[in-house]
């Protein structure tokens, strides 16, 4: 509003061109105004950076409430599982320390861990409660992604050991599907697809049967799935352990 052009100060030639003035502006000087301007500029920069980060950030609070409830469910399952394990291990450690029947205890513990790891690694046959499912798929409509989804759903429902079409499913198992021919870990899977999983039968079955779940998807594709809860199932297929060529255990 005050349109008077700022007069060149400190005896500068009034004819100094705009470029020279710009250069003079850029030259650092330790005047009060300069320091103030610099700190304002810094503040502006911080503000911009914060705002940019805020608009990019998407944490938990961005999720809707039903999603948050599911996340909470998931994480509390895990938390209580971890707590139980910590308590169990603490008891074991105390027993081992106290030295009562140490050798037997140690032997039992070591055996138990070998069993657990062996079952999880897929090198040991396993038995336990669980479910069996048979997917008859005359039109070869059960595709790789569906089987992948099935595996993840089973794991989510707490399956501890899974066998599909005579192949043991472990962490590194992969599903392939070329022209309707399914294979897991490179081994062909025949039709009907037989699925065996060890875990809580109720949880496993309800995870399969939920609306919009695996069984419904399979039905929509024109295949049928029959599912039965079993007090004991056996997972007998074994996984050939990978030979690690690149990775080495961290000591």
């Amino acid at each position: 509003m005050s349109g008077t052009p700022s007069s060149p100060s400190r005896g500068h030639r009034p004819s100094a061109g705009p470029w020279r003035r710009l250069v003079r502006l850029g030259r650092p000087r330790a005047t009060k105004a300069n320091v103030l301007a610099a700190s304002l500029a810094v503040l502006l920069g911080v503000g911009i950076a914060t705002q940019v980060q805020l608009t990019q950030e998407r944490g938990l609070s961005q999720l809707s409430q039903p999603d948050l409830v599911r996340v909470l469910d998931n994480i509390s399952v895990r938390a209580s599982r971890l707590d139980a394990q910590v308590r169990e291990l603490e008891a074991t450690r105390d027993r081992l320390r106290s030295g009562t029947g140490t050798t037997a205890e140690a032997l039992a513990q070591a055996q138990k861990r070998v069993d657990t790891l062996g079952i999880l690694a897929g090198t040991v046959a396993a038995k336990g409660p669980g479910m069996r499912m048979s997917i008859s798929d005359p039109g070869n409509q059960v595709t790789g992604p569906l089987v992948l989804d099935l595996i993840q759903e089973l794991r989510d429902a707490g399956a501890e050991s899974i066998e599909i079409g005579g192949v043991r499913v472990v962490a590194s198992s992969y599903v392939e599907d070329s022209g309707g021919r399914l294979s897991i870990d490179g081994k062909p899977v025949g039709r009907p697809v037989l699925v065996t999983a060890i875990g809580d039968p109720e949880t496993l079955a309800s995870a399969m049967m939920i609306p919009g779940g695996i069984v419904e998807t399979i039905r929509q594709k024109g295949a049928t799935a029959t599912l039965s809860k079993q007090p004991t199932v056996e997972v007998t297929a074994l996984h050939q352990p990978l030979t690690l060529t690149q990775a080495t255990p961290v000591p």
Binding site: T116, G118, T123, K127, G128, E160, G166, E234, V235, L238
Partner: peptide
């Protein structure tokens, strides 16, 4: 940790049988 599965037989070697896909 496992809470449902147990080994079918004790002490099967870590080496799998000749036909890992075959029913044991």
């Amino acid at each position: 940790r496992l809470s449902f599965a147990a080994p079918l037989r004790r002490d099967v070697g870590s080496a799998p049988g000749p036909s890992p896909t075959g029913p044991a």
